[in-house]
Every structure is written in structure tokens, then in C-alpha cells.
Design a protein around this nucleic acid. Structure first.
Length: 590
RNA sequence: GGGGUCGUAGUUCAGCUGGUCAGAACGCCGGCCUGUCACGCCGGAGGUCGCGAGUUCGAGUCUCGUCGGCCCCGCCA
């Protein structure tokens, strides 16, 4: 093992080309491959930029050739030599540096490596278990480096854009106080205040509002947030938000700012030109047409309302549901070439989505083909066929149940069909604003209303009078940004008027005493000339994931956690010393 | 908390209805080779089949439990 001493790297491995032929260069990196021909040894040296072939020829340097004999995969080398042009028959067209090679005059082993637990190569992707345990090896794979680089570039573009729009990046505390509502908090015990805990922020929500009261006017932060909830492919316990807040704004101002940002990101990263403005749907429209509030609008297969069309039929499975206040909705698959088996397989799928069953009608040359055919009169069949514009070959898939279940099942079925039928243009970026969310949602378990967005969201001005009389019907000045069916961000105009905030708290069952206790600082701030303000926050990890075309957040996070919120590399979380617990006045009860 | 799925050599995997099923490729170790780039050739080492019970004459294979990875539901203002 040798030291770097006075050696200085002259270029990255992926950089040398014909222009540098004849120059003495020094490259450093990892041994990606070694081909020993006895007389001459080839080493592919890799760093983050790519590969270059190093030739160790005893006629050039006996020492380098001898040193190359003991070199193994993933050893760290420094190589000094002349960049040579390869003879035409030895050019490797698959390598960006394939026209040249480094003729080694000196080769230093800076560090050996044990045999790695898996190959450092994009050709075989090891199990996620191994990748996460040895993340530093996984990160050597070109794909992972590209993901990290993409993440960096996006962050920089976001910063530059918001800076150009007059925003200040301001840090807010990580050690803050736990607040009711929302996700479970990660708690941090306070040593100097025994029995008291900080909470890691689920988002800097209140701080950014207080910055507005502080006259900052335009704030942003690319900031870590923490939520102690169960994980998913698109959910990590700590994740990064692009957090934005502005004063004296309407939703349109937030839309314009966001659209400008996304236009720039898509242009710079993908060379795509987005058309503006983005599509808009109200929450009610989204639910009616797509069955959920984050529809993928890259393809059709919209939901169809069928309740009235089937009300006067003898199809008892349908009429029973209608009697119980349920609905019937469906999806028309144009020109469906499903085999009978494929059709039958849809039923258990629908059941797995929560349906009791899946009804279908296929329009053939001879009319309706359907298990329901004998329960529907010919006249009704004609009426339904016309109403839905069914054509020969079309397939109508139907679910009857309570509205929520129907929406749920059909929205998932729609995505499944879109994917299976190849209707989703994978390289499109279709942004969508979803607006007019309900302010409140009735929580059956808690037997009270809870905030759909968060408790600081402003009710729609027009609905303000009915906040107490019809709380469930009040719309919020809240909006979500959806990209290709993924909820990318959400925000709202906040309550800047003290009395409105107090009225919302009251609807949430937060009494005056509790409000003072938990949010006193906010209510106080609102009483000192808080400007109208609002903002938005984007899931930065999800943004990177979508731009990378990755299937999981873990692909774009350097050191992610498993589905059980464990870091397989550091083995966090871990038990701590009794002494640490004593200092914190904490006793374990396991 | 619930459901599904996976766990066999360092890695990726094969191993059928229980009975030569302890296998392949790559990697690793040794040897040969001066133009390879998935180098080639010869030889070799390497596995408590995640772990624990059970069924059976016999379990990698079946059953139950358990641990871990992944996916989903609940949860995620």
C-alpha cells in the first residue's frame, strides 16, 4: 500500500480522449476489471466519471507490470502514464474513452479491497438487503451516481430559480415542539428539561408562517422532514421537502411560481417544454372522473356514472346497492380484446382492491354479452349503450358499492388497465392542479372533524359563513400538485385572521384552552398584523424519483431506511447505554 | 396491526408431485498466456438450503412459529 505523496490527479478516468494523446496523465480510481495476459495486463480503472483502460506493459515499465499482478477488483489505484492512441483494431467503441488508453509508467496501490459482497456493476443488481447493508459499494454503481447527481442538479435549479424570484432560504429548527394533529412525531428527550420532549418537524409549517409575520415575504427551504409512520416505496420516515411560503398572495400566484419552477426543471433536465398553464381539476371533479384526488391524466379510461341507468333494471346486485345508498360506476375500455380468462382474472383483482365483485358488459355484433344481460330489458340496454356511446368491441366494467369503495376500486382498476393496455405514455410529464379540497373531513374513529390539509388552511371565502353550520361542505383554499398520478406537492392559503383561525380550531374540537396551550405562539403572532400568506411544499425525493424514472425513493436517497425504518448499514435505531437513559430521566418499559 | 411475496455458495439464480438435489454462471484462490475489453485455457476451494419446532423411514421441498428484505392495506394534518 502506497501513499499519494505528491501525486496530483490530472483528470477523471472518463475524460481522456484523442485530444490528450501524448500527454502524461495521472488517473486515480477503482479497479473495475483486470485482464492478465501474462505478458501484458489490462486494468479498467473506474471513478465517478467512467472507465479508462490502463495498459501495464513490462517493456514500458516492469515495475508497473509487476504491481498489476497483485491488483484485484475494487483496489484503489493511482496510475501515472502517457495517454496513447489505440491502434484501430483495438479501439473499443462501447467506451467513451475507447479510442485511447493509459500506458502505465508507474502504478501505485493506494488501498486494497476485500472481495466485495456483490459485484460493483449495473449488470447484476443485488438484493436490496445487500445493497443497503453495503450502501457505499452500491453507490459506486454508475446508476446510483447518476441518481445522486440528478438530485444535486434539481436542488441547485430549484435554489437558483427561487433565488431569481426573490426568495430567501432560511433554516428553521429541527428541535421543535410536538403539535397535535397530523402524523406521529419523532420525539427527542430534553436532558436539561427532564420529562419534556422536542419533536422533529413533520414540516416547518408554523415557522414559515411566522416568517411571513416577520415580514420576510418570500421564504423557501430545502428541508428534511420527519414522520413516524409506516413506510412505502414512496414514503421514508425522513424525507426532503421544497418548502415555500409567500405573503400577499392568492392561489394563482402560487400556481404561477410553481409552474415557472417546473417548466425550468423539465427544460434543464429533460429538454422538455411544458405547456402552460397546467391542467386544473377540482377535488370533486377529480373524484368523479378518476376516482381519486391524484389522477394520472396521461391517459383516458375515465369513470362513468351508471347509477341512474341501472336503477330501473332487475339486476338485483345493483338495485340492492342503490337501495342502500350506494352507487354504480364503471369504466369503458374501447375495443377491448380481452380473452375470457383475462376478463375473469379482473374479478379477483377488483376484489383485492376492495370490491365485492366486478360486473361487465361486452358489446358484440349480436348485442350485449354479459352476466347481467338477462336482468336488463332490451330497451334499457339500448338506452345504456347510447348513453355511454358504446361501440362494438367495447367493454364496460362496473362496480357497485358505497361511493368511496367504488371510487377506490375503479381508480386502481383504471391504473391497472392503463398500464396493462399500454395506454400510459411513459416519457410524458403531465402536471395537474387539484383544487377546492374540503377543509374538513369527518373522522369516524375520533368522532369529530379533522383537517384534510392542515389546521392552518384558510376556508374558502365564500364558504366562511357555513363553517359552523355545514362544516363538511366548506371548501379549503388548498391545492395539490400532481405529476403523472403522484402527489408531488400541496399547499394552501393560510389563516392570517385570528378569528378565522380560532373558528377552524373550534371545528376541529380544539378548545380555547388547548389552542392557547399548543398554538398560543401562532395565535399571538396572528394578532400582531399577520399578512395574508400562503405557500406550498413539494416532495423533493419524489420529484427526483420521477425525473429519474425510478420505482422507489430509496434509489434517489443516499442512505435510505428499510420498510421497518431501519438503516441496515449503521443498524440504527439501536439500544443506548443505561447512563444515557439516566441522564434523560427515562426508564424503559418493554 | 393485517395481507402477499421472497430468503439455497461471496453474488445472481436453478433445484418439479418429499427419495444422487448440494447444482450452474459469475466472483474467489493457484497455474498458463503480449492486445484484451463479458479476455481465453487448466486446476481448486467454497453452502447448518435465514433460524426453530413439527409431520415423515426420509425435508432445501410439506406444516406451524420466528427473523429479515420487498410490495400493498390500515396509518401518512
Amino acid at each position: 500500500m502506497e501513499s499519494l505523496s505528491n501525486w496530483e490527479r490530472s483528470c477523471y478516468c472518463g475524460e481522456p480522449g484523442l485530444a490528450q494523446v501524448g500527454q502524461k496523465i495521472t488517473v486515480m480510481g477503482w479497479v473495475h476489471a483486470r485482464r492478465d495476459h501474462g505478458g501484458v495486463t489490462f486494468i479498467d480503472l473506474r471513478d465517478r466519471s467512467g472507465l479508462v483502460q490502463v495498459v501495464c506493459n513490462p517493456q514500458v515499465s516492469p515495475a508497473a507490470h509487476a504491481a498489476a499482478k497483485d491488483v484485484r477488483l475494487e483496489y484503489v489505484l493511482a496510475v501515472h502514464g502517457v495517454l496513447a492512441r489505440r491502434s484501430p483494431e483495438t479501439v473499443n467503441p462501447n467506451l467513451p474513452t475507447g479510442e485511447v488508453e493509459v500506458s502505465a509508467s508507474e502504478l501505485r496501490v493506494l488501498n486494497p479491497s476485500r472481495t466485495t459482497p456483490f459485484p460493483v456493476d449495473d449488470s447484476i443488481i443485488p438484493t436490496e438487503n445487500a445493497r443497503l447493508r453495503y450502501r457505499y459499494l452500491d453507490l459506486r454503481r454508475p446508476q446510483m451516481y447518476e441518481n445522486l447527481r440528478l438530485r444535486h442538479r434539481l436542488a441547485k435549479l430549484v435554489r437558483d430559480y427561487l433565488d431569481s424570484q426573490g426568495f430567501l432560504e432560511i433554516e428553521t429548527p429541527f428541535l421543535t415542539r410536538s403539535t397535535p394533529e397530523g402524523a406521529r412525531d419523532y420525539l427527542v428527550p430534553s436532558r436539561v428539561n427532564p420529562g419534556a420532549f422536542y419533536a422533529l418537524p413533520q414540516s416547518p409549517q408554523l415557522f414559515k408562517q411566522l416568517l411571513m409575520v416577520g415580514g420576510v415575504d418570500k421564504y423557501f427551504q430545502i428541508v428534511r422532514c420527519f414522520r413516524d409512520e409506516d413506510l412505502r416505496a414512496d414514503r421514508q420516515p425522513e424525507f426532503t421537502q421544497i418548502d415555500v411560503e409567500m405573503s400577499f398572495v392568492r392561489p394563482e400566484d402560487i400556481f404561477r411560481l410553481t409552474e415557472g419552477m417546473m417548466v425550468r426543471l423539465c427544460h434543464e433536465i429533460k429538454g422538455m417544454e411544458l405547456s402552460l398553464p397546467f391542467s386544473h381539476l377540482t377535488y370533486a371533479e377529480a373524484l368523479a372522473r378518476f376516482g381519486n384526488d391524484k389522477p394520472d391524466i396521461r391517459f383516458g379510461l375515465e369513470l362513468r356514472e351508471l347509477t341512474e341507468l341501472f336503477r330501473e333494471t332487475d339486476a338485483q346486485v345493483f338495485t340492492d346497492v342503490i337501495t342502500k345508498g350506494g352507487v354504480i360506476r364503471g369504466i369503458v375500455v374501447p375495443n377491448a380484446t380481452f380473452s375470457r380468462k383475462e376478463l375473469d382474472d379482473l374479478n379477483p383483482l377488483a376484489v383485492s382492491f376492495g370490491a365485492k365483485g366486478l360486473a361487465w358488459v361486452r358489446l358484440t355484433a349480436t348485442g350485449w354479452q354479459s352476466p347481467l344481460a338477462k336482468f336488463v330489458s332490451d330497451e334499457k340496454k339500448r338506452e345504456i349503450t347510447v348513453a355511454l356511446g358504446l361501440k362494438e368491441g367495447d367493454l364496460l366494467l362496473m362496480v357497485a358499492d358505497q361511493e368511496k369503495t367504488v371510487c377506490d376500486v375503479l381508480s386502481r382498476l383504471r391504473l391497472y388497465l392503463g398500464d396493462k393496455l399500454g395506454l400510459i405514455p411513459k416519457d410524458e410529464m403531465r402536471f395537474l392542479w387539484v383544487t377546492d379540497f374540503p377543509l374538513l373531513e369527518y373522522d369516524e374513529e375520533a368522532k369529530r372533524y379533522v383537517a384534510m390539509h392542515h389546521p392552518f388552511t384558510s376556508p374558502h371565502e365564500d364558504d366562511l359563513p357555513s363553517l359552523e353550520t355545514e362544516p363538511g361542505r366548506v371548501r379549503a383554499m388548498a391545492y395539490d400538485l400532481v405529476l403523472n398520478g403522484v402527489e408531488l406537492g400541496g399547499g394552501s392559503i393560510r389563516n392570517h385572521r385570528l378569528n378565522v383561525q380560532q373558528r377552524v380550531f373550534a371545528q376541529l374540537g380544539i378548545g380555547e384552552t388547548e389552542a392557547q396551550d399548543k398554538f398560543g405562539f401562532l395565535l399571538e403572532a396572528l394578532s400582531y398584523g399577520a399578512p395574508p400568506h400562503g405557500g406550498i411544499a413539494f416532495g423533493f425525493d419524489r420529484l427526483v424519483m420521477l425525473f429519474a424514472g425510478a420505482e422507489s425513493l430509496r434509489e434517489v436517497i443516499a442512505f435510505p431506511k428499510t420498510a421497518k425504518a431501519v438503516c441496515l448499514m449503521t443498524q440504527a435505531p439501536s439500544p443506548v447505554e443505561p447512563k444515557q437513559l439516566r441522564e434523560l430521566s427515562i426508564k424503559l418499559d418493554l
